[in-house]
């Protein structure tokens, strides 16, 4: 892709976002919607800048980030470990496969009330929900990646004298890395979404709680701010993971 095409792509991509903002502003300006229901975009962004400068709003962001990372990290560790184990050992595979088939399509959010009852209304229940939701994409893509590592890579390493127990970490794990990282990316976005929802359903802090508080008092401006914040957080985290990915996968052909 050359420079000019890239510029054109970026410009084209900005059109719908600009259009959306214009329609938003237009709707308010033309009086089609009262500002109490749809505050103008300028007001929303100003309010956001204002809030970002306050310590209390940053506390809410940190609470959300903490749960997000805790849940996501648990999901990454468990997902990769179980996925690799299921790909390598037929016995573990036979046990894991049917359980995953049942649990993967189960709407995890339905478990949230049970988690609340068992783990209380604090961090633990939310972190567990995030981990449960992010686990399956990571587990499945690890399993898929590990079981499709080219046989001849494994043979080459074995012929070079790699003992069988080292093959897992020297060949299968790096070979499955592209797929694992794709799974992590999906898991990260899911973590963002789930942590926010959990905080909306029941919480005393976090971005989701900010939205619900605003909704109860019909503060439309304050409802937009946490939504935009979580979207930005998602984009930033996604960008960071993308950077990690392109560093780790520098040797792999573009996917």
């Amino acid at each position: 892709m050359n420079g000019r095409d890239a510029t054109r792509d970026v410009l084209l991509g900005l059109i719908p976002i600009a259009l959306l903002l214009a329609i938003w502003q237009g709707t308010v300006s033309l009086g089609l919607a009262p500002p109490t229901l749809l505050p103008p975009p300028g007001l929303v962004f100003m309010r956001m800048a204002q809030l970002l400068a306050t310590a209390s709003f940053n506390q809410e962001i940190l609470a959300t980030l903490f749960r997000l990372f805790a849940g996501f990290s648990i999901a990454v560790v468990l997902g990769i470990a179980i996925g690799l184990a299921a790909a390598v050992s037929p016995a573990i595979n036979a046990a894991v496969r049917p359980v995953v088939r049942v649990l993967a399509p189960l709407p995890k959010v339905a478990l949230y009330p049970a988690l609340l009852l068992l783990l209380g209304f604090g961090h633990e229940s939310k972190i567990t929900l995030v981990a449960a939701d992010a686990l399956f994409p990571i587990l499945l893509s690890t399993y898929y990646g590990a079981s499709t590592v080219e046989q001849k890579l494994i043979w080459s390493a074995m012929a070079a004298g790699t003992p069988p127990r080292e093959i897992l970490f020297k060949v299968i794990l790096p070979g499955a890395a592209p797929s694992i990282l794709t799974g992590c990316r999906i898991g990260l976005v899911i973590s963002c979404i789930v942590v926010f929802l959990a905080e909306m359903i029941t919480s005393t802090d976090g971005l989701g709680h900010v939205l619900i508080t605003a909704a109860r008092t019909f503060q439309a401006v304050d409802m937009f701010v946490p939504l935009i914040t979580i979207s930005l957080l998602g984009l930033i985290l996604n960008g960071l993971l993308q950077a990690v990915r392109s560093y780790l996968l520098r040797g792999f052909p573009e996917v």
Binding site: E150, K152, S156, A157, V171, P174, L249, G251
Partner: peptide, 8 residues
């Protein structure tokens, strides 16, 4: 298929 380690 060469079977080179793509990460090395």
């Amino acid at each position: 298929e060469f079977a080179l380690f793509p990460w090395k």
